[in-house]
Design a protein around this nucleic acid. Structure first.
Lengths: 234, 234
DNA sequence: ACAAAAGTGTTGCTACTACACCCATGG
DNA sequence: CCATGGGTGTAGTAGCAACACTTTTGT
């Protein structure tokens, strides 16, 4: 049962694709990266970003490699979502697609994409109409992202090292796609005690100025290592 | 980017394995099915149940087929967990392993396993020591199962068509691995209004007798179809 | 002085926990 | 008549949502 059946080898030309749902956050709203398909069908011209697994490469390695090829750097949170057996029958071969999602900060450099890749950032409503997604992969990715966001650190990479609570709240609102109460948000997020108030204010947003905070990553990692699961109520 | 790279075809002999974490519930505790490995290493002699994907077969089809080959029937809730790139390098080929988990009722017939399959039911503590599981697949499966159990219907297949609330509670306690308060459990489970009290009592458990209940599957499916997510607090 | 965003405090409610308390009945 | 599990009621509380209120400062 455990061994590979005889005559199984080389009979099946599986191709292992890695598809990406890449979210981008630009201090305003959540965007999604899609690439133009090399397809003749006009109705299905946009698709998720895709790459292929190489021999002797782990899935996570391949995911990181492909992501870097697209974005030029590797600072993103990658998370495996699900595996599908036939999202695409191109050229008649059997493609297994392992879907990952990533979320990155849309700084100026990230907005530049490789020229050979015909891809574009869309807002979420826009893309749902343009993309061929019978499995609702995007919805699943959003749901998974929202769930994960409640364990704090995903979002941290979406903001500068120092940030105001208002910025942090805006980020959560973009991910969760709903407005949050200011007072309650502050109480909740500060009660976790992973944010540290700095001695500096951001005066660009208001007359009064908002205190900068930073995320204590060491403290967070210690908690994780000790098996403590942080949950913030949003 | 989207097309399969030229010269990619047939270069990589991937094997797509489907590994199963199969939970069994026998009205008492949660068990796990493991098979004897055909390995020379004594320390790693038990492993998850494994099968392989055939050509032109969907992942879900393959999972159902393999499950049926093992258990003799197909009445189980199957759920995809995660995909790993090298849980096993047997015979030097590259195995991609898609892990599913299933949970079934350990009735008398289910306890009988195919003779050609050298497998056994273990309790959870036991197996964690005997199995080679560097990725903590089993823990992940348990967590996922516990999370899913809160949306009710998984557990229903683990009980007869009519069951007492005490039986139901025992099932949840087995899955969640903790004791629940009787009064609170009843209030919660009945507040969902998917259980219907029958006119019959089970007198085997107590002098007083406990009312039988049945699960209203139609009502549940209607709710699901309308996008209503049921959550019970346990 | 006032607008506008930052930050704090208060109130009411919901839902959960942890029990205590009855009920029915076979022996 | 009492032991045993079935079934119900309730007080106390933690945590949340909603909203009002205060603070600061550039113009």
């Amino acid at each position: 049962m455990n061994a590979i059946p005889s005559n199984y080898s080389n009979q099946i030309p599986f191709h292992i694709a890695i598809d990406f749902v890449i979210f981008g956050y630009d201090e305003e709203e959540l965007k999604l990266l899609a690439a133009k398909r090399q397809s003749t069908d006009d109705h299905q011209q946009w698709s998720l970003i895709r790459g292929f697994l190489f021999k002797n490469e782990h899935l996570e390695q391949a995911a990181a490699r492909i992501f870097k090829e697209i974005m030029g750097h590797s600072s993103a949170h990658l998370e495996q979502l699900h595996t599908y057996s036939n999202p695409d029958y191109e050229s008649g071969t059997y493609i297994i697609s392992v879907v990952y999602y990533a979320i990155i900060r849309l700084s100026d450099q990230n907005k530049k994409l490789p020229k050979d890749l015909d891809a574009k950032w869309f807002n979420l409503k826009e893309i749902q109409e343009l993309i061929f997604d019978p499995e609702n992969i995007i919805d699943k990715a959003i749901q998974d992202l929202q769930e994960h966001a409640k364990t704090i650190p995903i979002g941290i990479t979406l903001l500068p090292d120092k940030f105001t609570l208002t910025q942090l709240q805006a980020m959560y609102e973009a991910i969760l796609q709903k407005k949050l109460d200011r007072g309650n948000f502050r109480k909740n997020i500060l009660s976790v005690e992973l944010l540290e108030k700095l001695d500096e204010k951001d005066k660009t947003g208001s007359r009064k100025g908002a205190w900068y905070y930073s995320f204590n990553e060491n403290k967070f990692n210690n908690l994780i290592d000790n098996g403590v699961l942080i949950k913030i109520s949003l």
